[in-house]
Amino acid sequence: MQTDLMKEVTELLSGLGNSLLISAIGILLGIGIGIVLGAIRHARIPVANIAIVGFVNAFRCTPLLVQIFLLFYALPDIGIRLTPFETSWLALALWGGAYQTEVFRAAFEAVPKGEVTAARALGLPAFQTFLDVTLPIALRIAITGATTTAITQFRSSSFMIVVGYQELTYVANRIVSDTFKVFETFGIACLMYLLICSILSAASRAFERRLLIPGLGVVK
């Protein structure tokens, strides 16, 4: 009995490892997409702007689950075959990227105008002003919002059960189907999700405090 539970916890932990792996890739790519597309939106580049608004709306206004189905079950019809692993991180990255674009666009808009004007008055070229003044401040402003999206991406990694990727929810579901130990298995899996979410939000708060610029009212 005791060893049974240990065996299940070990399996769940390996599922958690896979969840963390696809989430990490998805979150990092999502932040990358968000910074680049958010900056382009902030710079108001004519055609790119409309394309990005389209991308953001398309991914935010449709369920992630349907996007996953399209990527995994429909793309093979036009010759693009993705493995469950590739589908998992790609779906999380695209979906998270759409949300992060809005987070970083808002952060860029929230940078105090005076800072930018001062840098330009001191003779910094526009692009250098962006790199050395706007970006460092905007990234700090974006920490809270970007963490919220990242945590949602981590929780949504459970959707990858539908492509058969062996993440935490998939493993928990398989154990329950085999053993009918619903409460123990799902209970432990839920605790694992809760633990990771708390660690992520605590880390983000610590990060925000560490990076605080004295005198700049970035952190409430």
Binding site: R155, S156, S157, S158, F159, I161, T169, A172, N173, V176, F180, V182, F183, F186, A189, C190, Y193, L194, C197, S198
Partner: peptide, 20 residues
């Protein structure tokens, strides 16, 4: 608790727990 756990996990939990 309910915001820290994936929606799908809660759905599956209820789906399997109710018959039990």
């Amino acid at each position: 608790v309910f915001r820290g756990v994936p929606s799908l996990m809660i759905l599956l939990f209820v789906f399997f727990a109710l018959p039990q």
